[in-house]
C-alpha cells in the first residue's frame, strides 16, 4: 500500500499474511484484518473494494491491493481473503455490492453498521429541516447540504441500503424509478 504510515504496525508482521493453523489465533487474525480494512477505508474515504482488496471509485488511489504488502513481500492467498470477506459480511462490516451477497466481486465497507448510518441520516433530516420533503438520493450523497456529514460521498446504492432500516420503522418511504432503483426518499 502506498500510505503505510496510516496502517497499524501489525500490517508489517509477516505471519499476518499466512492463514494461521490455530483456530483461536486465526479468529483474532481475521479481526486484525477487518480492523485494518476499516481503518484504511475511513482514512481514505473508500466505500467500495473489490474482492481482491483494491479500493474502487477514487481515481487517484494507487491500484494496489490492501492484501499485498510489497515492502515485506507478503501477499494474502485468495482463499484466506475470501474467508476474511465472509467473516466481515457476517459481522455486518461489509456488504456485497450485488444484493448484499457474500461472494460478490465488490464489497461496500461499513465502518458503521447499517442502523448507525440510518440514524445518522435521520439526524441530518431532522437538523436540516428536510422532514416531509422528497430528497433525492443524489442530493443525500453528493449534495452540498451533506458536505460536512460523514455519509457524504457514499455510493447511492449504499445510501438506499442505509435507508432501509428507516423504511422498516415507517419513518421513510423510498421512491423508485421505472427500473426499481431508489432515486429519492421522503422521511417523516
Amino acid at each position: 500500500m502506498s500510505n503505510q504510515s496510516e496502517l497499524p504496525p501489525i500490517y508489517s508482521f509477516p505471519p499476518l499474511y499466512t492463514r494461521q493453523p490455530n483456530g483461536l489465533i486465526r479468529r483474532q487474525q481475521i479481526n486484525s484484518w477487518i480492523e485494518i480494512i476499516l481503518q484504511y477505508c475511513i482514512s481514505q474515504k473508500c466505500w467500495r473494494m473489490t474482492a481482491e482488496g483494491m479500493p474502487v471509485g477514487e481515481p487517484d488511489v494507487t491500484k494496489q491491493s490492501i492484501f499485498n504488502n510489497s515492502s515485506i513481500q507478503r501477499v494474502v492467498p485468495q482463499v484466506f481473503v475470501d474467508e476474511i470477506w465472509s467473516q466481515m459480511c457476517e459481522e455486518g462490516k461489509a456488504l456485497g455490492v450485488q444484493d448484499g451477497k457474500r461472494d460478490s466481486s465488490q464489497f461496500y465497507i461499513l465502518w458503521r453498521n447499517l442502523d448507525s448510518w440510518a440514524s445518522l441520516i435521520l439526524q441530518w433530516f431532522e437538523s436540516s429541516g428536510s422532514l416531509n420533503q422528497v430528497i433525492t438520493i443524489y442530493e443525500l450523497s453528493q449534495g452540498d447540504g451533506t458536505a460536512d456529514w460523514e455519509f457524504h460521498g457514499m455510493p447511492e446504492a449504499l445510501v438506499a441500503h442505509c435507508l432501509k432500516p428507516l423504511c422498516q420503522r415507517n419513518r421513510a418511504t423510498l421512491i423508485k424509478d421505472e427500473r426499481g432503483i431508489a432515486v429519492a426518499t421522503k422521511v417523516v
Binding site: I10, F13, P14, P15, L16, Y17, T18, Q20, P21, N22, L24, I25, Q28, Q29, S32, R74
Partner: peptide
C-alpha cells in the same frame, strides 16, 4: 507451541518461518 498459540507461522515458498505471537494473545 502453535497449538498453544505461542507461535504463529509465516509460510513462504522458501519454508515456514515461526514468529512469536505478539499481537493475538490467547
Amino acid at each position: 507451541l502453535i497449538e498453544k498459540g505461542d507461535l504463529v507461522t509465516d509460510e513462504q515458498i522458501s519454508g515456514v518461518y515461526y514468529h512469536k505471537n505478539i499481537y493475538w494473545p490467547l
